[in-house]
Design a protein around this nucleic acid. Structure first.
Lengths: 221, 221
DNA sequence: GTCTATATGTTGATAGAC
DNA sequence: GTCTATCAACATATAGAC
């Protein structure tokens, strides 16, 4: 990002990959663990195996580093789902696919939802600027495209008598709520319902099978 | 909490209520706005109309103040729902009631979910210690009681042919997801689907009517 | 590119007068 | 109880040698 030199350094310093990515990876872990405000650049540098001066050499400020991490985190969370939802597949297939993909992905990065929610709550501007970067200037364009696509499909299903009326917004929010919330609230569920560690994994495992039926059933006329 | 003196001061200093509560109220607002790590005690003091020395007089450390605020925030979020769920009302009525109560309450304090989720993610110990305080030593007791209560009711409904089988955990998580997530993710929905300000309010307004049907329908055999 | 050493600015917290 | 003034500890960021 800041680096321009293409010159490869001699064998010693970087164990694997280039340093910039190592710092970014470390920042990713630390920010997701402690939150942006709670994280310390010094801790990130230590976790990356470098000192904090080098961190500032690659990313000028903590803020820029935070933006880069958020960008990467959000980019691996949204595009997949957006792709599925904007496709031409039948509505029911989309829902099943989204559930499968989301539960699978979030099982591997369970801290992502809480991190994204926190960032959005305390730093709403970051998201706007990310959307602008992703969609090239017109934020909300992807969302609107998905919405009208879904809306059209719902209307068709309703006319065919296979579904009862529901707005595209409610449809989408219901779907995302059921997929994402359990991960965002995992610590709460652990304390409240005892869903910690292995029990949570089993819970999600069961959910992959049960949630599609639950969701589709709710939409039938 | 720290204050012992019952002596009332002369008319001048405190505009309304006692100072301790004013500080707590200010802390509540600031912590919910900026997150615990991002908030500054100085900002809290300013918002409370006092200086930061007085803040430390009442609450010795920022950490204690944060715990007090989280305690209060969580206490106004959970007990109501727990009360409904643990009651002897029929299952369907409980679900409707929870949806109505939650959507109504969160409409008035929309930042609460994101704050609680953030706190839990970055400060899981706080919740344990809160639960211990609330339930007098045995954390998870309330949750377990609710779970087995619900589990029993589900079994009865299933036997009566009015509901298809579902574990109490999935039942509860589905219900809470659908109620809480929209508020936790509001900034995301605003950026993505254009659900900001007035449009979000209307979305929630519609949701109060539509969600009970959606949820109940999903459970029918 | 990477390090050591250091500057600069905040921040949480305390001392002590009133 | 409430204030002014101040401290000590960090955390971010930079300078400059290698």
């Amino acid at each position: 990002m800041v680096k321009q030199s293409g010159k490869r350094r001699a064998a010693v310093p970087a164990p694997d990959g280039d340093t910039e990515r190592q710092i970014l990876d470390a920042a990713h872990r630390v920010f997701l663990r402690s939150g942006t405000a709670g994280a310390r650049t010094q801790e990130i540098a230590a976790e990356a195996g470098v000192n904090s001066a080098l961190l500032h050499y690659y990313f000028r400020t903590k803020e820029r580093l935070a933006a880069a991490v958020f960008h990467r985190a959000a980019s691996e969370l949204f595009p997949v789902v957006a792709g599925v939802l904007a496709s031409d597949a039948p509505l029911e297939e989309k829902a099943r696919k989204v559930i499968a993909v989301e539960l699978e992905r979030l099982s591997r990065t369970p801290y992502l939802p809480a991190y994204v929610i926190s960032e959005l709550a305390y730093h709403p501007d970051r998201f706007q600027q990310l959307l602008a970067a992703l969609t090239g200037g017109r934020p909300g364009a992807v969302g609107q495209a998905v919405l009208s696509k879904i809306q059209g499909q719902i209307r068709a299903e309703v006319r065919a008598g296979r579904m009862r009326p529901i707005s595209a917004e409610q449809f989408l929010v219901n779907l995302l709520s059921l997929c994402i919330f359990p991960f965002a609230a995992q610590p709460m569920l652990a304390a409240l319902l005892g869903l910690d560690g292995e029990r949570f994994s089993r819970f999600i495992h069961d959910r992959k099978r049960e949630l599609p039926e639950f969701f589709m059933k709710a939409l039938r006329p």
